Simulated assay, not measured.
Amino acid sequence: MKLLKEFTIQFVGLKLGKHQFEYQIGQEFFTHFGYEDFNDANIQVNVLFEKKTTLLELHFEISGIVNVYCDVTNEPYDQPIQNEFDLVVNFGDEYNDEEIDLLVIPHGEYELNIQQYIYELIVLAIPTKRVHPGIEDGTLKSEILDKLEELSPKIKEEKKDQEESDPRWNTLKQLLTDNK
């Protein structure tokens, strides 16, 4: 995959201490990754980059809105997302990203591309079941919801069935109360 230049941090020229990076993510970012689950995206990414003498620490925070399809009605809606992630970058003999929150890069490296971490952080912030907020509060009117209501099994709530029980159970209930 081709690396996007705007997500490359050249840390060799940076002074020791904290540095702030901000990114505005739109739909074209996900098109680059071939991810087609979003109709539109407007996400703010803040990265707090702390350069220390022996390692680098990154704190990612994302917040924004992605337009997705509802899993129940297939209606598009805006899903708010929010997530954060900490990454420690250490220096070693060879590249190693086997750990979730630890990245080892070779000693000679002078830059770090963070586009994959931003992509995964956003995608993992989406709920597994996407439900239109109009379904939960009852304001969404759609043909699919009407059809689901029509085809749903009808539950008869007759209280007399619950109150009347088999007389044989009464004898067993009496045994429970007599033992006390």
Rank of each mutant, 00 (worst) to 15 (best):
E143H: 06
T53L: 15
S142M: 04
E164H: 01
I25V: 15
L58G: 02
I9L: 09
E61H: 12
D161L: 14
M1R: 05
P80R: 04
L103C: 08
E6S: 11
E98N: 08
C70L: 15
F7S: 07
L102A: 08
S152H: 05
K180V: 04
S63K: 14
L172S: 07
I126M: 04
V68N: 05
D161F: 13
L140W: 08
I118N: 04
A125M: 05
K180A: 08
I122H: 00
Q44N: 09
I62G: 11
G17W: 14
K52G: 07
V66P: 06
A125P: 04
N42V: 00
E143K: 06
E136L: 15
I135K: 02
V47E: 01
I100N: 06
M1H: 04
K173F: 10
D101F: 00
L112F: 07
G138V: 07
I25M: 05
Q10P: 10
L148V: 02
I155V: 14
V12K: 14
N74H: 11
H132F: 01
N46K: 13
Q24K: 11
L124Q: 07
V72T: 07
E84N: 15
D166S: 10
E84D: 15
F33N: 09
Q82C: 04
F91H: 01
M1W: 02
K18E: 15
D37R: 12
Y95K: 08
